[in-house]
Nucleic acid binder design. Structure first.
Lengths: 326, 326
DNA sequence: TTGTATGCGTTATCAG
DNA sequence: CTGATAACGCATACAA
């Protein structure tokens, strides 16, 4: 079933049908005829032929580090929602935390198969920069502020600052920090800085020996908390840079029968789905991840429609959510 | 940069280049020449032209009910891994739990844009059946046994039976059940039957008043547990058909200061990432979700390569994971 | 407004 | 083994 079949059946030329499909010049009578035939046959134009002709695929590639993460899946849900609305398809590529895959997929996308790329970024290296600049299609980053492409990111500094303020407000001064490596600028640097600066502004001492670093998983929270609890002097509160880490921390504390928040308080960032169900429920920061997905998709689509549109960076706000762990 | 550009530069015909690309008959000398030119230019054949010509896209569509679910994201991770290995792309469509979207996407895929579809199924209606049968591309289901297409599913009956056995073994006889609606056959019927049959085989009474049903979320676990605890006679154990539900249940019990497992024991199914971190850690069943994703993808790919290959249903086993909630 | 003709970049066919 | 040539299905420039 091709466009010329339809044309014949409707007694018009194939270009008329094509124009009908792309709302070009068609007389009312022909419109009706064509519509009738299309309705009857259920004809749908071939995407591939269209792609070849128009050089546009109506597909956007999304590169994520892993899928089984609360925050990421919420961002993807947002992207998916917006793309659906604008009739785009979502091509998902999962790097499984392997940095090389990120570059690999970027290369795959350098060809002409997608109209744009959304990168859920962790680290942006020079290699990334070079590669991205070599792309002929727009790229937007979500989760990290990137200077050479449009991006949506969260107020990591502000959220960490606000949360730290809350910790201090609760009367704690001996505050530990479980963070992540610095190559993740948003989480590894910005949040840490928010924490440190808030301490300084409130004349609360920063204890380097309580500043621990690990990966993005619950194990890091568990292990580092254990280390903390084995120290001669224990902190009264633990600032976990991530909800996932905080969950590990809470689990550890419970296991050691250390009362939360009375003996040691805990907080996280991210407002994961399960934060509410921890014992005790986790005090954390909500980042509106789904919104950032939606906004990121909008941004990309805009860039696809109007390639000349200016570079943009949007920072999304946050909301502090008080529960019982702090 | 097209294939004929390469052909000219290498001093051969474009068909030679095409054959080189698709490992057809090319003499060693020409191979070298062509390789040299391709390496130098970084030429990559156009996917869209190839699609148009070959009628194959090397893309598979994946339909999921929601993305922010532990089990689903793990299945998708498995699919993604296998697809990557076989050089296929993954087109993700999220129905956001809306049954109509499922049909809608199936229709979108009816056209020729993907080579096959993986459906993470919840309910398979007659409408599904009709639609799927009208597709010219293969479809495999994951998570539900479907009689008219190939599928990968879990041993829901067996897992529920085994878990119930464990509950009884722990000395409980007053066992409640928090389930999901019957339109989800795997979770709503099979698991319930495994539970019931095990009770019967062990001469443990089934209490209809303790057989509660709700949605697939933590709220259901919380609310239904609350109901259970407000009854004149309380059960000693709660069988939650899902880890997510179990998490809600545990949260509720903790809130009511009911000791787990001493006063009331809890178990789930699914081995979610956070089950381990609950207080107490949840006794559950591991379903190897990632494997089912991998197997499902393999199955689909096989079907794509050999459309005549027979219908297949594979049931994956499970592993009971004992932790402290039971 | 309409139709004809051309080309998008490949791969398949077929004669050499 | 090789190369010309004809599709694949659509959208557009152009002539009408």
């Amino acid at each position: 079933m091709t466009i010329s079949d339809i044309a014949k059946m409707a007694g018009v030329s194939s270009s008329a049908v094509s124009r009908y499909l792309n709302n070009g010049y068609v007389s009312a009578k022909k419109k009706e005829k064509i519509k009738a035939v299309i309705d009857k046959t259920g004809y749908v134009p071939s995407r591939q032929a269209r792609m070849l002709r128009t050089k546009r695929t109506k597909v956007v590639g999304v590169i994520i580090p892993k899928i089984d993460s609360d925050s990421i899946s919420r961002i993807v849900a947002g992207i998916s929602e917006q793309l659906l609305e604008d009739d785009y398809q979502l091509l998902l590529t999962n790097t499984e935390n392997d940095y090389k895959n990120e570059l690999k997929y970027l290369k795959v996308f350098r060809q002409d198969f997608v109209d744009g790329v959304i990168l859920l970024a962790t680290a942006i290296t020079n290699e990334h920069k070079k590669l991205i600049k070599s792309l002929k299609i727009p790229v937007v980053a979500i989760g990290q502020k990137v200077d050479f492409i449009s991006s949506i990111y969260h107020d990591d500094y502000g959220a960490a600052y606000a949360m730290t303020e809350k910790v201090i407000e609760k009367g704690h001064r001996d505050i530990a920090f479980i963070g992540v490596p610095e190559w993740d600028v948003a989480l590894g640097i910005n949040r840490l800085n928010g924490f440190k600066d808030c301490l300084k502004d409130n004349n609360v001492p920063f204890h380097p020996e309580w500043n621990l670093t690990g990966m993005f998983d619950m194990e890091s929270g568990f292990d580092n908390t254990k280390k903390l609890m084995e120290m001669d002097k224990r902190p009264e509160a633990i600032f976990c840079v991530t909800d996932t880490i905080a969950m590990g921390a809470i689990h550890c504390l419970n296991k050691l029968q250390i009362k939360i928040p009375d003996d040691v308080a805990v907080c996280g960032i991210g407002n994961g789905r399960t934060a509410t169900v921890m014992e005790p429920p986790l005090t954390t920061v909500d980042y509106f991840y789904k919104s950032s997905g939606i906004e990121g998709a909008k941004m990309l689509l805009e860039k696809i429609e109007r390639p000349k549109s200016p570079l943009m960076s949007t920072m999304l706000g946050f909301e502090l959510i008080e529960r019982e762990s702090l």
